[in-house]
């Protein structure tokens, strides 16, 4: 089993599950549809990567939290809309860099086209909210300060951070947000060490399959 496929699949699956929680709760109808669409793209990526790593259903529904290898960034609760948008920005720019580095890989080439739309969506909201009202700016800066430490884990075992920063930093600057200093860098996701939030997410995601193995529509 390819560890890289498992990492990319787990990241996409957990990010998709979190985004899907916004369905019927987003600030406006168009945004509800947008977040659900992005979640669907990520779920599709997860299925492709996990199917290449093994049995997608077994991997998604029958592993415990200690067996998941996603970064902690994607498992954190959604927080407010600003948190969700900034995380989407961080994660989708990371995916953009990652898939560009994997050019020639059939899954990466397919997903790269969709991720360009995700990056653009997150970028436009970051600019609108960061450079928006005093309230929206304050919320975005708080979200940025809270999420920044969790971005370091995305770059364990790769050299994508310089490229990532070259995209993210100008967006933050244009959004009048202050990029936090690098400091605390929580880690462990890739080896199955997670925040408590992942267990609750998995409980909800897996309950049907565990109660009714093999259930079909």
């Amino acid at each position: 089993m390819s560890k890289a496929d498992l990492h990319h699949g787990d990241d996409a699956l957990i990010a998709a599950q979190r985004l899907a929680e916004w369905t019927s709760r987003a600030p406006e109808l168009e945004e509800d549809v947008a977040l659900a669409n992005i979640a669907l793209d990520l779920l599709g990526q997860a299925r492709m990567f996990l199917s290449r790593a093994g049995d997608e259903d077994q991997l998604a529904y029958l592993r415990t939290d200690r067996e998941f290898t996603n970064v902690q960034l994607v498992e954190l609760p959604n927080g407010d809309f600003g948190h969700t948008i900034l995380r989407l920005l961080f994660f989708s720019v990371y995916q953009q860099q990652l898939f560009a580095s994997m050019r020639g890989d059939e899954i990466a080439d397919k997903a790269a086209k969709e991720v360009a739309y995700h990056v653009d969506h997150a970028r436009m909201w970051t600019l609108r909210l960061g450079d928006g009202t005093e309230e929206s700016h304050g919320r975005m800066q708080r979200a940025l300060d809270e999420l920044w430490p969790f971005t370091h884990e995305l770059f364990e075992g790769n050299d994508l951070r310089a490229g990532w920063l070259s995209v993210v930093e100008p967006i933050l600057a244009e959004a009048t947000l202050t990029r936090p200093e690098d400091g605390w860098a929580p880690t462990g996701g890739r080896s199955g060490v997670h925040t408590q939030h992942l267990s609750y997410l998995l409980a909800e995601m897996q309950v049907l399959h565990r109660a009714h193995p093999g259930a079909r529509w």
């Binding site: 168009e30 992005i38 739309y117």
Partner: peptide, 13 residues
């Protein structure tokens, strides 16, 4: 353009 994401993944509104 009202929204880059529409009624299906392949459409915008």
């Amino acid at each position: 353009e009202l929204s880059r994401f529409g009624s299906t993944a392949c459409k915008s509104l």
